[in-house]
Amino acid sequence: MGFIHRLLTLIMKILVCITNVPDTTAKITFTDNDTKLNKAGVQYIIGPYDDYALARAVELKEQLGGSVTVLHVGEADADPQIRKALAIGADDAIRINADPVDSYFTAAQIAHVAAENKYDLILMGRESIDFNSGVVHGLVGEMLGIPSYSPVMKLDIDGTTATLAREIDGGKETLSASLPLVLGCQEPISEWKIPNMRGIMTARTKPLNVVEPVSGEVLTSPEKYSLPAPKGACKMIPAAEAETLIKLLRTEAKVI
C-alpha cells in the first residue's frame, strides 16, 4: 500500500477549468439590438473563483508533485488569461475553440477532454461570474460518473483521498472522498497568486494546445439581454430623526 500510495501521489494529474469573464467592476451594457455584450472598454479576467481553484492546484502540485493543466472553453481572446494561468504555475493549457453557449455544452466539452486524459482532480470556481449558474462542476461530475462537491473552502489530498470542507447553508461541513473528484472552489481554499517575473517568462514557452470542440447539443439559447430598471432617488432621513426611518419602513415600504 505504501508503495502504491507513493506512486499515486507522484503522478497526480490536476485539471483546472477557468472562465474568461468581465472584471468584477465592469459596467455591463449590450449591443446589436441587445443580443451581445458590449465588450468595448471591458477588462477581462480569469474568473475570481477559478483563480482560487488554480492557486490551490498549484500549491497541491508543489506539495505532492504531479501536473496542473489549465482548460478553457472559449475563443482566442482568452489566450492572455490562459498565459496568466500558466505564469501562476500551471504546466500546460488546453483551449477548446468554441463559444461556451450554455452550461451543458461547456460541461460536455470539459468532460470529453477529462475522459481522455484521466485527471485525478478537476477543479474550477464555484460559478462563473458572468452567468452565475454554478452547475458546470456537477454536470462534468455526472458526465464522467464521478462525485462532485461545491462550494469547497478547504482541500487537502492524502494519497487517493481528498479531505475537504464545503459551505452548507449557514455553516460548513468536512468530508472525505476518494479521487477522482470534481470540485467547485471558493475562498478561503487558497490565496490568489500573482505571477512573478520568472513565471511570466516561462509561461511564454509552455504548451497551449488549441483543440476543436466535439459536437455537442445546445439545450438552451439566449435570445435577448436587458438591464435592470434604474433605481429611483434615495430618500434621505436626517440622523437626528433616525426613528422616522422605522416608520417609513412600516408604513411606506411595508417591509417590517
Binding site: G134, V135, L139, S148, T220
Partner: peptide
Amino acid sequence: KSGLGDAVAARASAKLKAGIVSG
C-alpha cells in the same frame, strides 16, 4: 436557487439531458 439546488439540478440535468436555466 442554493448551493444544494444548483448541485442537484446540474447532476439531474446530465442524467436527463435536460436544459438547465439557473437564476
